[in-house]
Design a binder for these strands. Structure first.
Length: 1032
RNA sequence: GCCGAUGUGGCGGAACUGGUAGACGCGCUGGAUUCAAAAUCCAGUUCUCGCAAGAGAGUGGGGGUUCGAUUCCCCCCGUCGGUACCA
């Protein structure tokens, strides 16, 4: 009987759905296991074969774990708010809610098609009010907490308020950017507005004026991880720095814990390093520099306090608050010019011109606290407002940028570190002996760092400090399609959270998604909504990462309307055991989720402080693009030139005819016969009218217009064109043949003589087989290819070239999983995706290979059925059969555990081939194999499981375990090497002694031949492994 | 520049703890079946030389450790990804 995947798969998909086979309970005696796929954003283009790689892997693992006796949570949902839907709405006019719904339906269809074992009853969509009610609730929690450094966790803001009212802020050790101090009296005398301003410097969700990445084209600000190479990641639009009042999350409070947590998770080292770099911890010191003629001091951060004696100038970021204050009247104009220049520079310019040295002197001086010397204060772009304090002490002797700057502007350089003992060290290496450095002169750099910090602390002008590159996350978007903030401002602009009972604050209906005329967010168009009874609503919305930072928790208890998740649910499921997804979320999503999770942990809402125990990044699947080569005008010209030679006329190329003012150049002309040929694309020749003919007539020439299309059309037989020229010579007139419109000539890749005569074009990979073009399909694919003419190779085929590129529509290399499932079945598609290679590696997709997996499935099926029907027999298996099957069980088990799904597929193939060879169709063996294969090919195995006489789903069968006894060999084939080079193999009994093996090996004829006349220096026998004979 | 991956036949890839390099599959070659094709089945397929037996080379390149290295160490090169005035 024939294997018919389409029938089988349809049948069992329905069975699974009808019987709610994948529904998971929160109450189970089984141990829990949580397998999660990264939240997909349902884009309009649907899934291509690269997307399901991770889903299939996680599905196999989920099914495997289920068979191993775990209660497995394997949910799916959608990150449904976001920019693309809104962009689409602005461009096409479809409401984001509608396009999102449509895209989600398509995704669901595609996912279902693959036979994934999701518990869809737990589906979440971030744009669903039932879901974002809790996103808003979480935001309120963030708003109502601050980070206490003493407790090293988030604490309620009410505690802080109480402390302020009792003793001011003197003893508060919190994560804050608040400067200055106040007493209890000060606090109690503040107005509500003033108190709120202070508190906003402590809240974990707060508002402040920030320099943000403003993207004019998208009409919104972007987070750092939404920008690539200075332009927006989506759309590639320019981004500029702009000050705006924004909601922010104080993620920096968690920097150290985010770093520490990485030690406890099972992620790839590469990914952890990427996060570490993003967090960017650096140890150093802060120090205060007095200003000449001012009372204030400027705070700087340095990782090299040891070099302070070499600090010969100071540099402030252009945006530094004090630039204006310290600039002297004489320098005012120059500074203003410089600031204008900086403001005019886009992010892209700033990034691409890093090497450009710019800056300006403020006229002010600071006092180096250890040398007492006055040092000039400069403003320069290379100092960033957001890092450290936005001010540096510049040490041109030991910092490359400071050095370049000093050289450029002629500033003083004092060497302070003698590195002569470290010839390989460069400037930034912290090694050497201090020179010219007061009390630290002679010390090692490392000691000097400590000594200087100690001195700064003693003098009360500095302290040890740790700095992070990580910045507080921007949480406002000037967009419509996102979660509204549950915030209302009172008359004094003090924000108040909406009462929990009033959640969710639903996103109101809107049909115009452009910013308002004042450049405010789209919700600002809804005056009624914005100006509520309680006050003015926040009209910005939350960013994409709001909803996606906690979705994995919601799956545990997706329908709960009373809590964001119940304690029972979260205490049962705990955290994600296996998280599978793309590497693009390395610093964005994964960092935000971890931060939120730690916050929940602080509040006692979740039992773990890291959400994702093990993480696997699936590699990108590249598209295999195919190319055809279309002959261009140069090709036609060359061809015509060659052909004209064979015609009797004596044509000259690029010939000038006529004289003086009337002279002009034609492509080909024959003086004897007075024929002039113009070779042009048809549409250009069609513009020629009678005037052209007349022009030639005046010179007594016959004008023959020939279209490149004509040339291509008659490529294989030039005679019609020769005829045409001849005729024109007689009759004095010729027209281009309009019937050749849309004729193009395509040259087989292996027939190309000159690359410049052809244009390389992407061709749809679905009409190319083994790199040979299906010319019929090709001609139907585009109207301008309908009259294609080919230069075929010797075998009469059109060969395409190929390349591996990113899969995208524009490259015609997109392969749709639906088509694969349609042609080969979901089981085959699943297994082929896995068979391609290691899950974490990038690899190219090549549909040609899939028939290997298809024929495996046919062969496997044929173990159960022959042409007469069911062939399985209930007989006792032989030792050999048992060995084959149990080796397979052992290896598949081992390989799944190490996420090597590709080799699992190989094992199945090997086993099936062996059983075929043995003509073994025995029930007990096949039954084990069916369960073993079920995670990979669930439809087929469900079918066979029932055919084997079982009730209920194969998903709940018991996973087979191998018996080591069956795998024992009686003899082992040893490789026998001479000097490490294999020369023979020989079977020795399993229990042969070292001595026997050595003796017998040396006695072998082949070995005798190799050792003849040589001294045997050593014989190495590794039992059960190999023999190596060293001769000399 | 810095950080991280990675490099094995024509192609995707395999090789568990240093022990028969190229499993499994694609493709290709030859054969069987067929009127023919598809499908299927059998055999072969790292490269070089050789009719063959066989010999030599071989896991990006160069060195090293070892009886033995795709695997461990050092240096270099290519490809891919991340990041970039981070004080």
């Amino acid at each position: 009987m024939e294997y018919k995947p389409r029938e089988i798969e349809k049948k069992w998909k329905k069975y699974w759905e009808d019987n709610e086979v994948y529904k998971v309970s929160n109450n189970s005696d089984r141990p829990k296991y949580y397998v999660l796929d990264m939240f997909p954003y349902p884009s309009g283009s649907g899934l291509h074969v690269g997307h399901p790689l991770g889903y299939i892997a996680s599905d196999i693992f989920s099914r495997y774990k289920r068979l191993k006796g775990f209660n497995v949570l394997h949910p799916m949902g959608y990150d449904a708010f976001g920019l693309p839907a809104e962009q689409y709405a602005v461009q096409i006019g479809v409401h984001p809610a509608e396009s999102t719904r449509k895209n989600i339906n398509r995704y669901r269809q595609q996912l279902d098609n693959i036979g994934l074992s999701f518990d869809w009853s737990r589906e979440v969509q971030t744009c669903d009010p039932k879901y974002y009610k809790w996103t808003q609730w979480i935001f309120i929690q963030l708003f109502q907490h601050y980070y206490c450094n003493d407790a090293d966790k988030a604490r309620p803001i009410t505690e802080l308020v109480e402390a302020f009212s009792k003793e001011g802020n003197a003893r508060i050790n919190a994560s804050t950017d608040f400067e200055g101090s106040f007493s209890a009296d000060d606090w109690n005398n503040m107005s509500a507005k003033e108190q709120d301003d202070v508190l906003s410097h402590y809240r974990l969700a707060y508002r402040q004026v920030q320099y943000v990445n403003w993207c004019e084209a998208l009409g919104t600000i972007l987070a750092n991880d939404e920008i690539k190479d200075g332009v927006s990641e989506r759309g590639g639009h320019p981004v500029e720095r702009k000050p705006m009042v924004q909601w922010s999350l104080r993620t920096t409070a968690y920097a150290q814990r985010l770093l520490d947590g990485l030690e406890r998770v099972d992620w790839s080292e590469a990914l952890k390093t990427e996060q570490r770099n993003w967090i960017g911890r650096s140890e150093g010191a802060k120090a205060f520099f007095k200003l000449k003629g001012h009372d204030e001091q400027i705070e700087i951060f340095t990782t090299r306090p040891d070099t302070i004696f070499g600090a010969t100038f100071m540099v402030l970021a252009p945006e530094h608050d004090w630039v204006d204050m310290i600039t002297t009247p004489e320098q005012r104009a120059k500074i203003d010019t410089y600031l204008d220049y900086v403001g005019s520079r886009s992010e892209l310019q700033r990034m691409s011109e890093v090497k450009k040295i710019t800056g300006e002197f403020t006229g002010a001086y600071a006092i180096n606290p250890l040398t007492g010397k006055e040092i000039p204060i400069w403003v320069a772009e290379y100092v960033l407002k957001d890092y450290g304090t936005g001010a540096i002490m510049a040490v041109p002797s030991d910092d490359e940028r400071d050095n370049n700057f000093a050289n450029h502007f002629g500033l003083e350089i004092i060497p302070v570190v003698d590195k002569s003992d470290y010839p390989d060290a460069d400037m930034k290496d912290k090694v050497g002996k201090m020179i010219n450095s007061g009390f630290v002169t002679g010390m090692d750099v490392k000691d000097a760092i400590d000594a200087v910090i100690q001195k700064l602390e003693e003098d009360g002008i500095g302290a040890k400090q740790i700095n992070y590159k990580l910045r507080d996350a921007n949480f406002s978007r000037q967009r419509y399609w996102g979660e509204p903030f549950p915030i209302i401002f009172d008359d004094e602009d003090v924000p108040h959270p909406v009462g929990v009972s009033e959640l969710p604050v639903e996103l109101p209906a809107l049909d115009n998604f452009k910013p308002t005329s004042e450049g405010k967010a789209p919700l600002g168009r809804l005056e009624d909504w914005m100006n509520s009874e309680q006050g003015r609503r926040e009209i910005d919305t939350m960013p994409g990462f709001a909803g996606s930072s906690w979705y994995f928790l919601r799956y545990m208890d997706a329908d709960n309307d009373d809590e964001f998740i119940s304690q029972e649910a979260v205490n049962y499921w705990q955290d994600v055991d296996l998280y599978v997804g793309g590497k693009e979320h390395a610093v964005g999503h994964l960092l935000y989720s971890r931060t939120w999770h730690k916050f929940f942990y602080d509040l006692g809402l979740v039992p773990t402080d890291e959400p994702f125990k093990k993480l696997i990044n699936q590699g990108m699947i590249g598209g295999r693009s195919n190319f055809v080569y279309r002959a261009n005008e140069k090709f036609a010209e060359h061809y015509l030139e060659e052909q004209l030679k064979s015609v009797s006329h004596t044509f000259e190329k690029n010939k000038i005819i006529g004289e003086g003012e009337n002279a002009f150049e034609v492509d080909f002309a024959c003086e004897t016969h007075k024929v002039a040929i113009e070779l042009k694309a048809l549409h250009r020749l069609e513009r020629y009218d009678d005037k052209h003919h007349e022009q030639f007539e005046k010179l007594d020439y016959t004008f023959v217009p020939i279209a490149t299309e004509e040339i291509f059309s008659h490529y294989h037989d030039f005679s019609p064109i020769a005829e045409k020229i001849k005729k024109a010579t007689d009759k004095g007139k010729a027209e281009p043949n309009v019937n050749t419109k849309d004729t193009a000539l395509f040259v087989s890749q292996d027939m190309i003589e000159d690359r410049s005569m052809v244009t390389k074009l992407h061709v749809d990979v679905n009409i190319v087989h083994h790199d040979f073009l299906d010319t019929d399909a090709f001609e139907k694919s585009r109207t301008d290819f309908r009259r294609a003419v080919y230069v075929l190779n010797e075998e009469g085929k059109y060969k395409c070239s190929h390349a591996i590129e990113k899969m995208s529509k524009s490259k015609f290399n997109v392969v749709n999983p639906d088509d694969m499932v349609d042609q080969y079945g979901a089981d085959c598609f699943r297994m082929y995706e896995m068979f391609l290679g290691p899950i974490e590696q990038g690899k190219p997709w090549n549909t040609e290979g899939i028939n290997g997996v298809q024929s495996f499935l046919k062969k496997f099926y044929a173990l159960f059925y022959d042409e007469n029907g069911w062939r399985v027999v209930d007989e006792k298996p032989t030792a050999e059969e048992l060995k084959v099957v149990h080796a397979c069980i052992k290896n598949v088990n081992r390989d799944i555990e190490r996420f090597a799904f590709n080799t699992c597929v190989s094992e199945f193939m090997k086993c099936t081939n062996e059983l075929r060879r043995l003509k073994s169709y025995k029930k007990s063996l096949l039954q084990d194999l069916v369960v073993l294969l079920a995670p990979f090919a669930p439809h087929l195995c469900e079918e066979l499981w029932h055919e084997l006489g079982h009730e209920g789903t194969v998903n709940l069968a018991t996973y087979p375990t191998h018996n080591e006894d069956y795998l024992k060999e009686s003899a082992i084939t040893y490789p026998i090497s001479i000097n490490g080079k294999k020369r023979a193999t020989y079977d020795f009994p399993i229990d042969a002694s070292k001595e026997d093996i050595e003796k017998e090996a040396l006695a072998l004829d082949i070995i005798q031949k190799w050792t003849e006349g040589k001294t045997i220096r050593k014989v190495i026998v590794v039992p059960k492994r190999m023999v190596n004979i060293v001769v000399g």
